[in-house]
Design a protein around this nucleic acid. Structure first.
Lengths: 133, 133
DNA sequence: GTATCTGCAAAACATTTGCAATTCT
DNA sequence: AGAATTGCAAATGTTTTGCAGATAC
């Protein structure tokens, strides 16, 4: 599926801004903030504004095309990978790593009457590269 | 151990503000924001300021007496329960529930060279009480 | 031509910082 | 008195909002 089809399948009308933002999120697979997206796409789309980045990411979130990731409490990050996985943030180099984690295994201590819509697992510490140096 | 002893054992000089903040966190076992703590203790300590709440919680965090909990990305919440557990936030009633979860079980897909200092598991959805109504 | 999308400027809100006032020993 | 604690006011940084201009169908 190309970008146009992916957006359409989520009931999102494709525009150049939306396509570029989605392609950035999907190809980079980092967990950018609105500011990072804005700075990265600005050279390509000189008229882009941060408001439009927020408009776009908020739309994607409501259409369940991407997921919010909370790494630090003062900023929203976005992830185009909507499968369950954990995040590890190195507090030394600030890098965020993905790792596999089946979060459904963690549900058994929660009542079945609770309907879970979103799962986030976050570890913080020192990554192997920073530990060595 | 009483509050004075707990604070001292974490190398924190007990003051009235610190004792009241810790006792609030420990007894309520909710996951308050700085604003909630401020509003709750204000009647008791009329001269209290939000800055002092932040000073106090930041001190507690650096001394590992409490843990930061990120439920929403725009605010810091604090938890006096420093054992591993998960949080469930109901997006309907905003209530936050604790549940048991052994997060160390989630580490096996992360390289052993990564040093983990902090773990957070967060589910969001609809709690059983809101589902019924 | 009407609805949607985009983006500037200002507002909102949580948190931090600088510094002065207060308190404790 | 000297050091630590507290708290006011201002600054900072991210996200949201109001609205006007641009674009698309």
């Amino acid at each position: 599926m190309n970008t146009v089809e992916i957006l359409r399948s989520h009931d999102i009308k494709p525009t150049i801004v939306r396509m570029k933002v989605y392609e950035y999120l999907y190809s980079m697979k980092n967990h950018p903030t609105a500011d990072t997206i804005y700075k990265s796409l600005s050279p390509e789309i000189p008229t882009l504004s941060k408001t439009s980045v927020y408009n776009t990411t908020t739309l994607f979130l409501t259409k369940n095309l991407i997921r919010p990731v909370t790494i630090e409490e003062n900023e929203i990050r976005y992830d185009a990978d909507t499968t369950d996985h954990g995040h590890f943030k190195c507090t030394a180099c600030s890098e965020v790593y993905d790792f596999n984690a089946d979060l459904s295994k963690m549900e058994h201590n929660l009542s079945e009457d609770f309907q879970i819509n979103e799962r986030q697992l976050l570890f913080k510490g020192i990554c192997s590269y920073c530990k060595r140096s």
